[in-house]
């Protein structure tokens, strides 16, 4: 994963709540065995509607998605994150995220920016109003700002995720440093626990 420190760019508004992962990337796209090429399927059903924001040229260069509450609920498909990043989004701003989606995001370098309901609503309106509005997301400080409208807000992120994002670290590599602790734990597991014969 590439390190992510600061994201500055324009944003696309998605004024809907409960955007589930079936909408972000419909199931027909899940048959691929690669990690790439999912951008084409992003919001596959909705983008057939010509008035959908993704079809609005003014948002072509957006790297930030501003959505309503409960973004990324539903299925665990990481393909939803891959679709957003493949399309060019680097962060999503929402008042609330589905847990698995939030987890998946940071593994793939997509930054989930959780803001209060009021800040979320304000940003949605501002971005709809002015597609060139510049937004900055600073991972280290946990701050999101849009100076042109005088907005600055903090967003939560656990220290480990922050550290991983800032340094572009691979989770598995970190865990493998603890191989000894895993061995020790394994040795103490009760013998009745099921194993599948291979």
């Amino acid at each position: 994963m590439e390190p992510v420190r600061t994201i500055t760019g324009t944003a696309m508004p998605l004024d809907r709540s409960d955007v589930d992962t079936d909408q972000i990337i419909p199931a027909e796209w899940l048959k691929r065995v690669e990690r790439t090429g999912f951008g084409e399927g992003l919001f596959g059903a909705w983008r057939k509607d010509r008035t959908f924001a993704l079809n609005d040229d003014r948002y072509n260069d957006a790297t930030i998605l501003v959505a309503g509450p409960n973004f990324g609920t539903g299925s665990s498909r990481e393909h939803a994150v891959w679709a957003l990043t493949d399309y060019g989004f680097r962060a999503v701003i929402s008042p609330r995220f589905g847990d698995i989606f939030r987890n998946n995001s940071t593994k793939a370098g997509l930054v989930p920016v959780q803001v209060g309901a009021e800040v979320g609503a304000r940003l949605l309106a501002a971005v709809a109003d002015d597609p060139s509005l510049e937004i900055t997301i600073e991972i280290e400080k946990g701050l999101v700002s849009a100076p042109a409208i005088g907005l600055e807000a903090s967003f939560p992120m656990d220290e480990f995720t922050r550290h991983r994002l800032l340094n572009g670290l691979d989770d598995i590599g970190i865990t493998l440093q603890h191989a000894e602790a895993i061995d020790t734990f394994e040795a103490s597991r009760p013998s009745w626990l099921p194993t599948a014969s291979t």
Partner: peptide, 18 residues
């Protein structure tokens, strides 16, 4: 609980999850 594909890879490799 459900996990994403990066976590699937993590569990395959380490049998653990942070």
């Amino acid at each position: 609980y459900g996990i994403g594909t990066s976590e699937v890879e993590h569990v395959l490799a380490t049998q653990t999850l942070p």
